[in-house]
Deep mutational scan, measured.
Amino acid sequence: NRRVIAMPSVRKYAREKGVDIRLVQGTGKNGRVLKEDIDAWLAG
């Protein structure tokens, strides 16, 4: 149960899109989840 590193704005964006942020692979520094990662996850 790893802790997800993401800015609050990215967490909010994921919530609005209905994405469980824990399932998204972060590509930022130290595995940080970026807004682009959410978009990529939604695109498949």
Rank of each mutant, 00 (worst) to 15 (best):
V10Q: 02
I21A: 03
S9A: 15
T27W: 04
N1W: 03
E36I: 14
V10A: 04
R22E: 10
G31L: 08
A14S: 09
Y13N: 01
D20I: 07
G31K: 08
L42R: 09
L34Q: 09
A6V: 04
Q25A: 13
R3H: 15
W41S: 06
L42D: 06
I5Y: 06
I5G: 03
R32P: 01
E16K: 15
I5E: 07
A14P: 00
R15P: 00
G28C: 03
A43Y: 12
R3N: 15
S9N: 10
A6W: 02
L42W: 08
N30V: 08
R11K: 08
I5L: 08
R15H: 09
K29F: 09
S9M: 11
R22I: 09
I21V: 07
K17R: 11
R2C: 15
E16F: 12
Y13W: 06
Q25K: 12
R11D: 02
E36F: 13
I5V: 12
R15V: 11
T27N: 09
L23G: 10
Y13K: 02
G26R: 03
V10M: 03
D39T: 10
D37K: 00
R2Q: 14
T27S: 12
R15Y: 09
V19H: 01
P8Q: 08
K35V: 08
K35L: 08
R3T: 14
G31P: 02
V24Q: 02
R22W: 14
A43R: 14
G31M: 09
M7L: 14
P8H: 09
L42F: 11
E16L: 13
Y13Q: 03
A40F: 13
G31I: 02
R15M: 10
R15W: 09
A40Y: 13
G28E: 03
R11F: 06
T27H: 10
G31S: 08
V19K: 00
G18F: 10
L23C: 05
S9R: 14
V4M: 03
A6M: 02
K12D: 04
G31A: 10
A14F: 01
M7D: 15
T27L: 05
A6I: 05
L42V: 12
K17D: 01
V33A: 03
G44I: 12
E16N: 11
E16T: 11
L34R: 10
K35E: 07
K35Q: 11
N1I: 09
I5M: 05
Q25T: 14
A43N: 12
G44Q: 13
V10C: 07
N1T: 10
Q25C: 06
R3G: 15
W41N: 05
V33L: 06
A43E: 12
